[in-house]
Design a protein around this nucleic acid. Structure first.
Lengths: 235, 235
DNA sequence: CTTAGTCATTGACATTAATCAATCCAGCAC
DNA sequence: GTGCTGGATTGATTAATGTCAATGACTAAG
């Protein structure tokens, strides 16, 4: 019965990522408490969430859009440690400063919690802490795959690996195969893959020439059906 | 009063890593319960704890010794994702199979828990889950540093980075500086650093010629006091 | 419509690290 | 001690990727 106190909707109930991130661990009643400490944050493309070394005051759910996480060496060399999409969690860290920077690649909306408030919620709802541990384990497994990419794969293998991964996260499947709208620049790809933009560009050209991908424009990459299958089963 | 039930010692109380790993989160009384589900495991050098892809039935504390964690590509290329030492935790994973192999580099003793039993303990002692989350966050931060090594550092920077890190974990400080007894082979170092054994060897030779390290024998590396300081402040 | 700016692509060349092939050396069996 | 064995080291060469420079393509402003 809409309008009664018991059934009144609160923002989280209708959130796109209600059943993802940390919210998935809670029922509607519990979520109401989480909702009370959450703040919506909107970012334009290239907007900064936080910088490496900032006090880690907040944690975030990614609701819409896309982010890149990166670390810098003193001389400016950059390593992107991850790309984030709706349903990802941002800010897991025991340290009191962020170990990396987080920037929006496209228009992005986040759900923000103060560390202090979230810590209280964790004490109240152990399920929430359990969920965070799951998320952390996942991130760890992803990081290990990323280590394999950077340490032991060739340029072409690196590209194919991330294309397949992006296909899973942001790919649109149709009868011809998979279409990926890249939210990131060639430089971002390069800094994720441990390559230069030139090598990324040349490698994409090579994949196109070999018929492994089509590139209607530079943000869009299509992987034909047959190719995708061949790649997933290991060439 | 030794001998009374209340004061009788149980193994964990006198454990070398009592105040590390997950045990640090518990008081003596709670630790007694954890003790009840723990099994000691001894491994010789090169002994296998588990293989990538095995059912992830157990989790471990490292009590003494040293381990390497590694992943393989189908063609045999190997990436070592981490080295473990006393006080480290092994097996964090949400998946039902291990994402990497774990092997002893030296004689090693572990403290083993079945996942099922440990899960029960987590429900009983939320502190324990909190501790696991801290450990996972730490691992994540380490993995991100490792990504920077592999993606953006030169061979010589990679070597120096890991030498300093090993110095922190297994280094002996004396008046001349830091001495590191390497538990791993050149091949292990190479597979951690994303290089070949030849490049590792040549790079160590180069460091020796430049006076940055001394190598009394191939397992031992000394970093003179002045050099260590210079390195930590960033060359 | 033109122009400026940004990013992607391509080309020529340099460099780093990998590969392939000998030694070298310490530890161990005999 | 002598010879064997398995890393480690060194050398010569190659291949992959980086660097530097030019060109091309799209977008947005005027």
């Amino acid at each position: 019965m809409p309008g009664t106190a018991a059934s009144r909707q609160f923002p989280c109930q209708t959130c796109e990522v209600r059943d993802k991130v940390i919210c998935a661990a809670l029922d509607d009643e519990e979520l109401r408490h989480l909702s009370a400490i959450a703040t919506a944050v909107e970012l334009k493309a290239e907007g900064v969430v936080f910088h490496e070394g900032d006090d880690s005051t907040y944690l975030f759910n990614v609701v819409t859009g896309s982010l890149r996480l990166s670390k810098l060496l003193p001389d400016g060399r950059r390593q992107i440690t991850g790309f984030l999409f709706p349903g990802d969690f941002l800010g897991l860290s025991i340290a009191d400063v962020y170990a990396y920077s987080a920037e929006a690649m496209t228009e992005t909306s986040l759900c923000r919690f103060s560390r202090a408030n979230l810590t209280k919620m964790l004490e109240r709802f152990p399920k929430l802490e359990h969920r965070l541990l799951d998320l952390a384990s996942n991130e760890l497994a992803q990081a290990q795959d990323h280590l394999m990419i950077l340490g032991r794969k060739t340029a072409i293998e690196r590209l194919l690996t991330i294309l397949l991964k992006l296909a899973e996260r942001v790919g649109q499947r149709d009868s011809n195969g998979m279409t990926i709208e890249l939210p990131m620049s060639r430089t971002d790809l390069a800094d994720y893959l441990g390559l230069t933009t030139e090598t990324v560009s040349r490698t994409i050209t090579r994949l196109r020439n070999e018929g492994a991908v089509k590139t209607p424009n530079w943000r869009t990459i299509c992987i034909p059906k047959g190719v995708e299958l061949a790649l997933r089963t290991g060439d």
